[in-house]
Structure formats: C-alpha cells, structure tokens
Amino acid sequence: MNSIFFTITGVCLIGLGFSAIFKDIHNLHRILALNIFGSGIFLLLVSLAYRGPDKIADPVPHALVLTGIVVAVASTALALTLMVRLTRSTSDINKEEQK
C-alpha cells in the first residue's frame, strides 16, 4: 500500500515540528514549526482514510482535516499579529532607552 510512505512522513513531520516549537529560535520559525506539526497530523489522518486508488476514501477524516486547515490559518494569523505587535513594542522600548 502506497499510503504507508505518507503515514511515515506525517509522523516525521510531527516529530520535527514538535522539537522546533520549543527551541529558542525566531518566533516566525516557531510559527512555521507549528504549521509543520499540524501538516504532519493532517497527513496522518488522510493517509489512514485512504482505501486504495479506485475507492472513495473515508470522508470523515477529510472533513476533520478541512476544519483543521481553517483553524490553523486562523491561529497562525492571530499568532503573527501578536508577534508583529511584540516586535514593534520591544523596538520602541529599545529606541527610548537609547535616547
């Protein structure tokens, strides 16, 4: 069955994303890592729903993943806005200290 490769890739993406989220790297990289983590979970669910090339796959995990993608976009947008506000306020503080 071909979908086994996708399952393994999903598991690897989960591991990679998870280990990067908790590192002290730039927040943008951490938000990217969160998205990779999510993609891994989606890949896992959809590859488990696969029933062969000629058969209709299980629609329930597909619907869950669709919902998940939308929620991921919403949370990414909120996280990015928070990050921009944080960067701006810290750079303002730094400027005032230099004065």
Binding site: F6, S47, A49, K55, A57, H62, V65, I69, V70
Partner: peptide, 16 residues
C-alpha cells in the same frame, strides 16, 4: 491528490 482527497487539496492550495 495522491491520497484521493481533492477537497483537502483545494483547501491546502488556497488556504494552507
């Protein structure tokens, strides 16, 4: 698309 999930593919390309 390879996993027979065209709905998810459309959502990933446009949203994700």
């Amino acid at each position: 698309i390879r996993l027979n999930a065209p709905d998810v593919a459309l959502a990933e390309a446009s949203l994700g």
